[in-house]
Simulated assay, not measured.
Amino acid sequence: MIPVFDGHNDFLQRVVTGGTGVWLDGDGTGHLDLPRARAGGMIGGFFAIWIPSPQGPNDSAAVALMENPPFAMPLPEQIPFAQALPHAFAQAAALKALERTGTLDIVTTARGIRETVAAGRIAAIMHMEGAEAISDMDALHLWHAAGLRSLGPVWSRPTAYGHGVPFAFPSSPDTGDGLTDAGKTLVRECNSLRIMLDLSHLNEAGFNDVAALSDAPLVASHSCVHSVSESSRNLTDRQLQVIADSRGLVGLNFASSFLREDGRRLPLEGFDTMLRHLDRMLAMLGEDGVALGSDFDGALMPRDLPDAAALPALLAQMEAHGYGEALIRKIASENWINLLERTWGE
Rank of each mutant, 00 (worst) to 15 (best):
M73K: 08
A145D: 08
H144W: 12
R247H: 13
V210T: 09
G56R: 14
L315E: 03
P76S: 02
M137K: 04
Y161W: 13
P74V: 10
M42I: 10
G44Q: 01
P166T: 01
L252Q: 01
G183R: 10
A299N: 05
V4S: 04
Q55T: 12
A97G: 02
T185N: 07
Y161M: 03
D25M: 10
H277Y: 12
A244G: 05
E204Q: 15
D6H: 11
M137D: 00
A316N: 10
P267V: 15
L85K: 14
L340E: 06
S200H: 11
M301Q: 12
A255E: 05
R276C: 01
G286Y: 11
M42S: 00
P306H: 10
L340S: 04
I243V: 10
S227A: 12
D295K: 11
A62G: 09
S53G: 04
H277G: 02
M66A: 11
G298Q: 08
E269R: 15
I2L: 07
F296C: 02
A320S: 08
L218M: 05
K96G: 04
W50N: 03
S135T: 06
D297L: 09
N58G: 07
P57Q: 12
A211P: 02
G176D: 00
A145S: 14
N335G: 03
F71V: 15
A62V: 10
L315P: 00
A82N: 10
G45A: 05
T17H: 09
P158V: 10
L292G: 01
I49K: 05
E99F: 09
A92R: 13
D10C: 09
R303M: 01
H226I: 01
V107P: 00
R111K: 10
S172R: 11
R121L: 05
D105G: 03
M284T: 08
A37G: 00
F89I: 14
A93C: 04
G345V: 05
G298N: 05
Q91W: 06
G21P: 04
I106R: 03
T159H: 07
D105R: 15
L252I: 13
L104D: 02
H222V: 03
A62Y: 11
A61L: 12
I51D: 00
I122T: 12
I43N: 00
L311Q: 06
S171L: 10
F5V: 07
G345W: 11
R14L: 12
D174Y: 13
C224W: 07
G7F: 15
A244F: 13
